[in-house]
Amino acid sequence: MEIRPPRADRQAKGARGMGWSHFPHDADIGIKGVGRSPAEAFEQAALALTAAVTEAAVESKAEVAVRCQASDLELLFVEWLNAVIYEMAVRKMLFGQFQVRIEGKRLEGLLRGEPVEVVRHAPACEPKGATYTALKVEKDRDGLWSAACVVDV
């Protein structure tokens, strides 16, 4: 399956507001994911991270498993994004599909993607790390979960 982040509005919203979006920060970029569970919100936020880098299609040619843990859900969200950023950096890959499972303070994630092709992906930036700025993981009144923070690029 290919994930094609849309170009113009810097967001992709599904049914009932689920999806991902970017929000502004003076120097860098805010990313937000919304889903029916924290795991889905984390998956959507990771799509927002990829969309901060490229507007091109990212094919699922290889799979990488990550694990992380933290003392609360917000810190776990930062750990998750930093795990994705680390794999992007050391493997020189982009990921277009994410599966997250959260049990208590532990997270297991599966990333699917392909090596960066500079001409085709035309990466606009290189994420350095997820920050605690504008960090929020919360459930709204409709029962939807959102996960957001600023990423230093």
């Binding site: 970017h22 929000f23 502004p24 920060h25 120097a27 860098d28 970029i29 805010g30």
Partner: peptide, 8 residues
């Protein structure tokens, strides 16, 4: 120093 976000 930036005056506009990357987003904007």
């Amino acid at each position: 120093g930036r005056s506009l976000s990357r987003h904007a």
